[in-house]
């Protein structure tokens, strides 16, 4: 056997049997390209974030005191600004993503860094919102009726430890949840693309 046999076999294969070309491009519904999957995930996440913002906005009406409502909505305003900024960045990123006619190497690098960029933006947004949530929890504790009254009384070491422990556990769980989410939805594509990208390395 030599490669000429394979060549003649290849030339003799008509290939197209059984494949049906749709008569309308609207009928083509495909989304297995990693970048298209990201676009699909982004659409779902955008709706999820919008619903979360509305729910969080409505929750502010149930604050026990007026001053708490004012502070709550101040923090909510910061949250809207952060979400608005990232929504704009995600939208620009979303519009830019698309198929390309680059060389295989350039295409792989583009897909790889698009996924990386998206993951980093997602991480930044999550951590920014996490800090805001911390701010809200601290505000809630400080403004809780009775807290200011007790402000002069000494606080036990055990209480400080408990508060610190709650913050640390909350932070660790949030970081783990974010990383797991990123790994499940985007990391697997990035890992696979990296593997293919590495195949292109010069090995002469």
């Amino acid at each position: 056997m030599n490669f000429d046999d394979i060549q003649s076999l290849w030339n003799a294969d008509d290939g197209g049997r059984g494949m049906v070309v749709p008569d309308n491009v609207e009928k083509i519904k495909a989304a297995h390209h990693p970048v298209d999957k990201i676009r699909k995930n982004m659409r779902h996440e955008a709706w999820g974030q919008l619903i979360a913002l509305i729910v969080i906005g409505l929750y502010g009406r149930s604050m026990p005191t007026e001053i708490m409502s004012v502070i709550y909505y101040c923090l909510y305003g910061v949250m809207l600004a952060i979400c608005g900024y990232y929504a704009y960045r995600f939208y620009r990123f979303y519009r830019r993503l698309g198929s390309s006619v680059l060389s295989a190497k350039e295409h792989l690098y583009e897909v790889y860094y698009d996924i990386q960029l998206h993951m980093e933006m997602y991480r930044l947004l999550t951590y920014a919102l996490m800090m805001l949530a911390f701010g809200f929890v601290i505000m809630y504790m400080l403004m809780k009726p009775g807290f200011m009254h007790a402000a002069g009384t000494p606080v036990g070491v055990w209480m400080v430890f408990k508060i610190a422990a709650i913050f640390v556990v909350f932070m660790v769980l949030s970081v783990i949840a974010t990383e797991v989410w990123l790994k499940i939805y985007y990391g697997k594509y990035q890992k696979e693309i990296k593997k293919i990208k590495d195949e292109l390395k010069e090995d002469i």
Binding site: I28, H32, H33, S100
Partner: peptide, 22 residues
Amino acid sequence: ADDQQDLFQEIVYQLWKSYDSF
């Protein structure tokens, strides 16, 4: 055959998306 059909659809979809660059 199923995966080949899926890939065929995907390729046609990507070709259509990039058609302006032809």
